[in-house]
Design a protein around this nucleic acid. Sequence first.
DNA 1: AGCAGCATAGGACTAAGGTCCTATTGCGCC
DNA 2: GGCGCAATAGGACCTTAGTCCTATGCTGCT
Lengths: 208, 208
Amino acid sequence: MNTDATIFVVDDDASMRKSLLWLLRSAGWRAEAFASAEDFLARPVWPGPGCLILDVRMPHLTGPQLRDRLAAANSSLPIIFLTGHGDVSTGVDAMKKGAVDFLLKPVDDQVLLQNIQLAVERHRAARAHARELHIIRERLARLSGREQEVMEYVIAGCLNKQIADALGIAEKTIKIHRGRVMQKMEANSVADLVHLCQTAGVAPRRAT
Amino acid sequence: MNTDATIFVVDDDASMRKSLLWLLRSAGWRAEAFASAEDFLARPVWPGPGCLILDVRMPHLTGPQLRDRLAAANSSLPIIFLTGHGDVSTGVDAMKKGAVDFLLKPVDDQVLLQNIQLAVERHRAARAHARELHIIRERLARLSGREQEVMEYVIAGCLNKQIADALGIAEKTIKIHRGRVMQKMEANSVADLVHLCQTAGVAPRRAT
DNA sequence: AGCAGCATAGGACTAAGGTCCTATTGCGCC
DNA sequence: GGCGCAATAGGACCTTAGTCCTATGCTGCT
């Protein structure tokens, strides 16, 4: 359910905040509203899934500026811009920088809710992927240099013999390294290993 | 080089077409211009890499309508919109539907040329990927039902024994199927096979 | 000085993968 | 009714991978 996701609203217009909060909560979302970008930044970083509904024109920090701050802080929170007076280049630029949508006030409730649904789903998927990636990278970090090297040949489909030849060492030693790679990467098969490496962006290395 | 790419300009303003053609050609691109969407559609489909610089407001078919036609015809040509009087939602919508950019006239020559470079590179990459995918799918189509089934277990890292068990047949038969899978898929190793399947979106099947 | 970790390697063995040849059954097609 | 193909399978045999035990030389840290 949506109980673990939170929708954040940042808008300097109090009546807007009020009506958005009402809409979101009656649609079953947990929601919080902020009157300025600064207020939102003052909040402890939200660690769960969610999304941000962001006004463009605000005193001090604008919506796009807040987005840049969040991006610089490695936030993955998806953003839906909501603005009364948008100009074309701001909208296009927002989309290029990954916004889920750039909506004009007054916005249709259903359109907004659909966008939120999409944004939260995307965020969940992105978070799951990031977690997976992190786990794999931790395993990779446990490999010694030689083990990493051997692994790159293994995921290229090289035989132990070929790897031994390429590295100029005994096939026996390759087997040892290879066994440790499988242990440390927690892979049960070459297929598993290939999959892990592909996810983590480890490139295969072909014997010349 | 850029000799195999063509840039298409579709704009109803003759002076715009002329100056764009001049700009593109002096930057080393092969370029063609059309006064209307219909004229462009009348042209034989361009099979190579390239991109489309498209005006939004035109008599009869508009830019976005042309994009929809091309999308329906499975075109992969990237589009850069170029418009004098864009409204926000058109721009945002264009970006959501995959436009490379949505630029306002008058456009800075360097910005446009950079966008074209990006668009053509993306198109080349997309085309290369599509070709690769097509080759893999053709190989997949050569597999018999049983072979496909066995392959799904193989790329899950299952042992022949486990596959035999799951399918209720002899391990010997799995070896036969497996050998034929490797032949037909033109894979030299399990690692190769996993890679091909991952590219083609064939999901591994785990033994229960 | 001594220990931990890495890279190296041999011996002995098991298991798993792969290939060649042969063979049977069942299905659809000309 | 025979032909081709998919699916099934056994025998014989070789190659690869993986594991357990043992062992050496090097580096860096304490």
